[in-house]
């Protein structure tokens, strides 16, 4: 009996050690396991759905979410919250197309640049309220979101634009490869590049480390000489640029422009980032985790479509997934609080 319990404790310890080694900074491994588990469920319930086309669909629907999530990630790591990014994204995408149509110009690259610049301009509103007037980040972005949508609908336009300028439309139609019946659009490349760039920035630049520092303890950051407002301004400008770019990606991929789209997707994006390990208390999160979060959300949604579940249920299911994901995160970080061993050898004296 005694020998048995001792052995089982040993086994448990080993599992813990292995887990500690591979769980990843923000428990990314747990997420990956969750994704695999969901795939397993799909394999049992609807095996015919698991095709390359399915993978292609997941990538296709994840790409805009990821582009939006990257900007939000920065805000959340710094201890803030943002709900204005869909408004910034659709404003930039739609306004760029409107400008192109108005002047009758066409282009492939510069429209993305223009949309990003518009995103920066709109992001500066958030920066102003947060860094200059020290407003609560969530409240500030609720306000700017309303302003941005209002200006978009009142001054830029409210009509559905069914065809894009030719060169942009061509990008929307060009793919780098096909997965089953699903073409993988060329725009995954810049989005993946941006993900690598943001990841590098967060890990290897002083700006990135300052974002974590501010999220960890704002007052401590100030005391070591980090200029908190200046870091915040840069966060919101970059988040704006990313949102503007994402908006353009969305418009090009859907091959039309509607000022009423993207609004309402904030929940999915926030869910992806939070499941990815960026808790709202700040100071945590990674691009890797966010990518997994995006994959998870995208997988869930596509699975629901495959299973023929009505779209009314999607929000509910996403909500449940968020709760599970966040619970895993919370559980994992509370287990982390370690105690160091004091007794030298329990067994020897037992």
């Amino acid at each position: 009996m005694k020998a048995y319990t001792r052995r089982s404790r040993g086994a448990r310890l080993r599992v813990h050690e292995i887990w500690d080694r591979y769980k990843g900074e923000n428990h990314e491994t747990a997420l990956l396991l969750l994704i695999l588990a969901l795939l397993g469920v799909m394999a049992i319930v609807e095996p015919s759905a698991l095709t390359m086309t399915f993978v292609g669909d997941i990538i296709r629907s994840g790409i805009v979410t990821l582009a939006l999530a990257l900007g939000l990630l920065l805000v959340i790591i710094s201890g803030g919250m943002d709900v204005s990014f869909p408004a910034i994204a659709i404003f930039s995408g739609y306004a760029t197309i409107t400008v192109m149509n108005f002047f009758g110009v066409d282009g492939a690259l510069w429209p993305f640049l223009l949309a990003s610049i518009m995103g920066i301009a709109l992001g500066s509103l958030n920066a102003l309220f947060v860094a200059r007037y020290r407003m609560e980040t969530l409240i500030a972005s609720l306000g700017t979101q309303v302003i941005i949508r209002g200006v978009l609908l009142a001054f830029i336009g409210s009509v559905y634009i069914s065809t894009l300028p030719a060169q942009l439309d061509a990008i929307g139609a060009s793919s780098i490869m096909r997965l089953g019946n699903s073409p993988v659009n060329i725009l995954v490349l810049p989005v993946i590049a941006l993900a690598f760039l943001v990841s590098w920035m967060l890990r290897k630049t002083m700006f990135g480390r300052s974002i974590y520092a501010i999220g960890g303890d704002r007052e401590s950051a100030r005391r070591v000489g980090i200029r908190v407002p200046s870091v915040q301004v840069r966060i919101y400008l970059i988040a704006g640029a990313l949102a503007g770019f994402a908006g353009m990606v969305h418009v090009v991929l859907s091959r039309h422009a509607s000022p009423f789209e993207l609004v309402g997707t904030e929940l999915n994006v926030i869910a992806a980032v939070v499941i990815g390990g960026a808790l709202d208390s700040g100071g945590r999160g990674s691009v890797k985790g966010t990518v997994y979060g995006v994959l998870l959300i995208s997988l869930v949604q596509n699975s629901l479509v495959r299973l023929g579940v009505s779209s009314y249920w999607h929000v509910l299911v996403v909500g449940v997934v968020v709760l599970v994901g966040v619970a895993i995160q919370a559980q994992a970080s509370s287990r982390e609080a370690k105690t160091t061993r004091i007794l030298e050898s329990t067994e020897a004296s037992a």
Partner: peptide
């Protein structure tokens, strides 16, 4: 103490040196 709970011991210790050196890229 004014530390950063979410960062490692090493990074906490090196933080003021980094800030003072005005480094852009960190290792």
């Amino acid at each position: 103490m004014s530390l950063f709970p979410n960062l490692t011991v090493a990074e906490n210790i090196a933080m003021s040196a980094r800030v003072k050196a005005r480094s852009k890229v960190v290792r």
